[in-house]
Nucleic acid binder design. Sequence first.
DNA 1: CCAGATACCGTCAGAGTGTACGGTATTTGC
DNA 2: GCAAATACCGTACACTCTGACGGTATCTGG
Lengths: 217, 217
Amino acid sequence: MPVPRSRRTQAERRATTRARILGSTAECLLERGYAATTISEVQERAGLARGTIQHHFPTRAALLVGAISHLVDSRIERFRAEAALVEDGPGKMQAVVDLVWRDLTSPVFFAALELWVAARTDADLRAALVPEEKRLFASMRELYAGTLGEPYTSDPRVDTLVEFTVDLLTGLSLATMLAPDGGARDAVLARWKRALAVLAGLLPAVELLDGPGTIGP
Amino acid sequence: MPVPRSRRTQAERRATTRARILGSTAECLLERGYAATTISEVQERAGLARGTIQHHFPTRAALLVGAISHLVDSRIERFRAEAALVEDGPGKMQAVVDLVWRDLTSPVFFAALELWVAARTDADLRAALVPEEKRLFASMRELYAGTLGEPYTSDPRVDTLVEFTVDLLTGLSLATMLAPDGGARDAVLARWKRALAVLAGLLPAVELLDGPGTIGP
DNA sequence: CCAGATACCGTCAGAGTGTACGGTATTTGC
DNA sequence: GCAAATACCGTACACTCTGACGGTATCTGG
């Protein structure tokens, strides 16, 4: 006997299925990659009819454009939640490195990477992606600053150090994406934490390679 | 009247068309991306018949695997040529940063990036890619060391600094790939050069952000 | 309560893809 | 020279993907 569904407004119906579709798209990007993220595949994962997908996203391009904002939102939200867990203390700079690292090795990041790389050779995708990524970067910068707080935020070098950290960890994530060598990866992370201390003037350069490297303000 | 072609050995014929196919594949990866790199597209660019492509690479997967080694070879060769031009002098460390940057923003890099990202979700591609990239990294390490020479090579911190540089510049290349902001990009590069000097103990940390930053041994 | 709007469904044709296959031209080994 | 081998060619076919379309269920505004 068919359960009479609770009455939902059109807006609610629309929003939930839309979210379902975009969730499946993200999942598919993550697991199968950009090229294999087809309408049929998304449809199947979402458990919806072909026409439904098309009703919300008339073309594949529109679907992928929709996925962009969705992924950016997820990533910001995820980062915010993780950032809230960072505790104050002498190892805060290092904790933020770990925070950035968790972001740059998270599923959302790799799903977004698929679109990012595809956008290099797809003008439409790029046009939609670039402003969204600007939004992402702006949010991220705020979150970095908010998480670090004083006295870090007032140091003019910190912006640069954050930029270094994000770029470096992005490269490291890419490099270790295919053949994760946990040991080497962690070693680079540990050394970078020490390097940050050196660059902040908290540690002499000769100590770049030794010791535990937990240095605070 | 058909010109009687000079007699070429089978090996020669094979090698040249093979190279032609792989060249077209690389070009296509660069210009159109992984998803749009189809047999037809490669065939058309190479000006060969469909059967010819298939004679050399029975499947699309085989073609892409073939492209991997080809790209790695190109990249090593390209880097070697550029490295030979680096002159000795007080700004050598900085010159190597520029050298790495030219590699990580070169067409071959972006073509390889397409395969790299695709390999994340394609086990066969990954199996072929990982050993080739090991080969690439090994060659690169040699070339870094050879280019830097003494006294850098004997400093145990240099390996780490090279790793930092490569990872950081990889991230920077990715980040600025879609919307190149020359100014911001160059600023990060310049600051990283100074940071290297700080990390090597040649410059005090307080000078991270100021001045031209050409520091030598 | 009911007409119009909107969300969802399922099938279809056209284009494009990858691979199989038989045929022609060129080179090789004897 | 001449068969065998191999490089190159072009068509054919089965498959998948996309976007179009008409049809049904659910909601909304009056």
